[in-house]
């Protein structure tokens, strides 16, 4: 099985974010970029499928600027992906999800792909668009919020679950298709030190981003704002649960004014 995983570098969750001077982008000066959490689960899923189905290959693809895109591709190679393709985008250009999907589609379509895996959404903008847009560009069916993906060689079908707000759906689907995965359900592995060293020397295929007539400025963020600093919690002192409830209701009514 030829498995393609699409990944994106996102700011480390521990990074303290700042906005740029004009407020239309994030100041990435001191930001540490890492493989997005959803994408980690997608890579893990790809490697599990590869291990369960001998002869399979995992091809990791990412679209973005240097150096962070190269770093997440190398991190994926260190985890066990077999080959990597980088659609290089000029620094300072933040591609919107549709542009990213089209860029990825070009790289994916020019190589064998039975199964295309993505994280359900990125860990930064949380747009959740790329998987579906990529499927549309490739002309393939798309499944999102997927868990527990397995290949059944007998019926030549994928079997998986979808986590929805009303419960878990059970699905099966033939190849080829695009699958966007839930985060952190499969305990993504950690790359070992020798694999990290080896991944530095592996080749990465580079694909230039061709001008996309229809995509320029499809969407554009107008303003980034940091959330207001949290104010201190208010502790309610009480002797009985009834007293605590009465005091809480009074605060919700008179101070927070959440109901009349």
């Amino acid at each position: 099985m030829e498995i393609v995983v699409c990944v994106k570098p996102v700011p480390d969750a521990e990074t303290r974010l700042r906005t740029s001077a004009d407020g239309t982008s994030l100041d990435i000066e001191a930001v540490k970029f890492v493989l997005a959490g959803y994408d980690e689960s997608a890579v893990e899923q790809a490697l599990l499928l590869k291990e369960a189905n001998p002869g399979s290959k995992v091809h990791v693809v990412s679209a973005g600027p240097a150096p962070r895109t190269e770093e997440v591709l190398r991190a994926s190679l260190a985890l066990g992906c077999d080959q990597a393709t980088w659609v290089e985008i000029a620094p300072g250009v933040a591609p919107d999800p549709l542009t990213a999907a089209r860029a990825l589609a070009r790289a994916v379509s020019s190589a064998p792909h039975d199964l295309v895996l993505c994280g359900k959404q990125a860990g930064d903008d949380e747009a959740g668009v790329v998987g579906a847009a990529l499927a549309e560009s490739l002309g393939l069916p798309d499944f999102s919020a997927v868990l527990d993906l397995r290949w059944d060689p007998g019926s030549s079908r994928l079997r998986f679950q979808r986590a929805t707000e009303s419960g878990v759906e059970k699905w099966e689907a033939p190849l080829p298709c695009v699958v966007s995965l839930q985060q952190a359900w499969n305990d993504p592995r950690t790359a070992k030190l020798p694999a990290i060293l080896k991944s530095r020397k592996l080749p990465i295929a580079k694909v230039p981003l061709e001008p996309l007539a229809s995509s320029a400025g499809t969407t554009r963020p107008t303003k980034f704002e940091l959330p207001p600093p949290r104010t201190g919690a208010k502790m309610i002192e009480f002797k009985t649960p009834e007293e605590a409830a009465q005091k809480l209701v009074r605060i919700l009514k008179e101070e927070a004014k959440v109901f009349p």
Binding site: E71, R74, A75, A78, T190, A191, L193, I196, L197, R200
Partner: peptide
């Protein structure tokens, strides 16, 4: 170097 950053990240995570 990026390689050294990766080694340090691995040790930090562990």
């Amino acid at each position: 170097t990026p390689e050294q950053e990766s080694l340090r990240d691995l040790a930090r995570k562990f």
